[in-house]
């Protein structure tokens, strides 16, 4: 294994590795963010997050294949349906779990589990199980020691921009302060006059919006299928738990950790083993410290 590592370094693949690490890290951080935000603020766990990602991916794909529209317009389409979906789910189910059920997490897990099941099978019915894909922005940029395609740079930039936007929203705005307060101490926030319903609805919106966007981004660089969602749901859990529920900065760091593990194991051994490693991390983290490694010092 060390011989191989040295070989990789010698052949200047190190830059390529770093680039891929950066890509995975930001992408995973973006995927973990909605889970961390939603779970941290409302205690609603969205097991169907991977399926929302899948729907976002298929939105982009369908726009190109069936309508001949540049898949980047998918951002607008996704903004529309994800907002509506978030609103309906919140009013129809999540608010019941939050305010009326004793165990919000358990009810929401079962509900979204059932939902994800429905969406996956509906997707299999509509599109079949095979992998589909499309190619955009495949022009290559040649840098010293590194050749990257434009779509990957695009994903990195958008992920970074989205994460920074959310961080600014949370830490530099009045609204963000209210959300952070609600995450920190739900009861005290209400005692200060903050209406929890508004905060939770907003968090649901943001969560679904970002999730659908991440689906679009994934579709630009990977192939898609109705079964793609499960893996990303696992990533969302892993990143959110390592970073700490409700801790978005932690999410970013967690993204880099998971990205590192997958990239390193992927290059040193194989992609398949890397996936198993990620699942293994998932199991370990839940057993040991699901509240997050970074939760003492936010």
């Amino acid at each position: 294994m060390f011989k191989k590592a040295f070989w990789l370094y010698e052949h200047m693949i190190i830059l390529e590795i770093l680039f891929n690490w950066m890509l995975l890290s930001l992408l995973y951080a973006l995927i973990g963010l909605p889970m961390s935000l939603l779970w941290g603020s409302t205690r609603v766990v969205n097991v169907a997050q991977g399926e929302v990602i899948m729907l976002g991916a298929y939105t982009a794909f369908s726009l190109l294949i069936f309508f001949g529209i540049n898949p980047l317009y998918a951002f607008l389409v996704c903004a529309a349906w994800s907002s509506l979906l978030g609103f309906l789910l919140y009013k129809g189910a999540f608010s019941m779990f939050i305010f009326k059920h004793k165990e919000t997490e358990k009810s929401s897990i079962l509900f979204t589990f059932a939902l994800s099941n429905i969406v996956i099978n509906a997707g299999l019915l509509m599109w079949g199980a095979q992998l589909r894909g499309y190619k955009i922005m495949t022009e290559h940029i040649v840098l010293p020691g590194l050749v990257v395609s434009l779509n990957r740079i695009f994903v990195i930039i958008v992920c970074f921009a989205a994460i920074v936007t959310i961080l600014i929203l949370l830490h530099k705005t009045w609204f963000g302060k209210i959300v952070r307060a609600s995450i920190d101490n739900r009861v005290e926030a209400q005692l200060c006059g903050i209406n929890p319903d508004v905060v939770y609805l907003a968090c649901t919106f943001i969560s679904f919006l970002i999730t659908s966007f991440s689906g679009i981004l994934i579709s630009t660089i990977y192939d898609i299928s109705p079964n793609m969602g499960f893996f990303y749901t696992m990533i969302a859990f892993l990143v959110a738990m390592i970073g700490g529920l409700g801790n978005i900065k932690g999410c970013l760091v967690a993204g880099f950790i998971v990205g590192f593990v997958q990239t390193a194991v992927g290059y040193l051994m194989s992609g398949g083993v890397a996936l198993t490693m990620v699942y293994f991390m998932f199991v370990i983290i839940i057993c040991l410290r699901p509240e997050g490694i970074f939760n003492w010092a936010k």
């Binding site: 302060k177 209210i178 952070r180 307060a181 920190d184 101490n185 005290e188 926030a189 200060c192 936010k298």
Partner: peptide, 13 residues
């Protein structure tokens, strides 16, 4: 208190 927020932010809220 909002443990993870600053003293000033607590007062603001």
């Amino acid at each position: 208190l909002f443990e993870n927020l600053s003293v000033y932010e607590n007062l603001e809220l």
